[in-house]
Design a protein around this nucleic acid. Structure first.
Lengths: 107, 107
DNA sequence: ACAAACTAGTTTGCACTACAAACTATATAT
DNA sequence: ATATATAGTTTGTAGTGCAAACTAGTTTGT
């Protein structure tokens, strides 16, 4: 028979690409822990450029993972972000798949 | 002072992109556990197309993460892949960064 | 009052990437 | 001979991430 049958359940393939990108992983994780954050907070906590944050958050918004509320604080525009229930579920699922896959490896 | 200073160490940004891609993550993980595998094995264990595997493995080879040995088995070509020491180190580091970052999150 | 510098973002352009389809080359079956 | 299968590689294309450039407004300096 030669080689024994091997079955390694590597579920990396089904990881949500929208979450998996490192930049969005950072942004989503931040939103996950702080519940709600504005643009400036995201910018100072990360080392991302404004443009980068903007386009990624738009992508997350279009996916329905993030809610956006714009208002003025004093005279300045402020953009607030918050994970939606859908976004939270997607992130939970992502984490579970990833940590399961990682823990399935030896060592 | 308003809001307390928050410092969340999210190290996702430094993840090795070469490893982070889900397809390569799958391929590298496979090599990590089986030590050495041929093209056909990688193809049957994953649901990837041959072209996809080919280009990803070339990328990993160029990065010095994977060694390739070609030979004939009977009359058929066989391409064997194996993680290099460098590749193994990179993968170990990747796993550590990722699991640390994940475990830093609440819940 | 006017300009320069700063704040808060969005849009654009480019270089790179992943993916499957198409291809090469050889072997086997009919 | 022709068709089908195996073992891959190369090519073409659509999509992506990123910073630079831009928009719109505010504050500061003189």
């Amino acid at each position: 028979m030669g080689v024994k049958a091997i079955n390694i359940p590597l579920e990396f393939a089904v990881l949500d690409r929208l979450i998996h990108d490192p930049t969005r992983l950072t942004l989503i994780s931040l939103l996950f822990v702080v519940e709600s954050a504005d643009f400036v907070f995201l910018k100072t906590q990360t080392n991302l450029t404004a443009g980068n944050i903007s386009s990624h958050m738009t992508k997350l918004e279009n996916a329905g993972y993030v809610m956006v509320k714009k208002r003025f604080v004093g005279k300045r525009p402020q953009t607030m972000f918050r994970l939606t229930a859908k976004g939270r579920r997607a992130f939970d699922k992502y984490r579970n798949i990833l940590s399961d896959a990682l823990s399935g490896l030896p060592e």
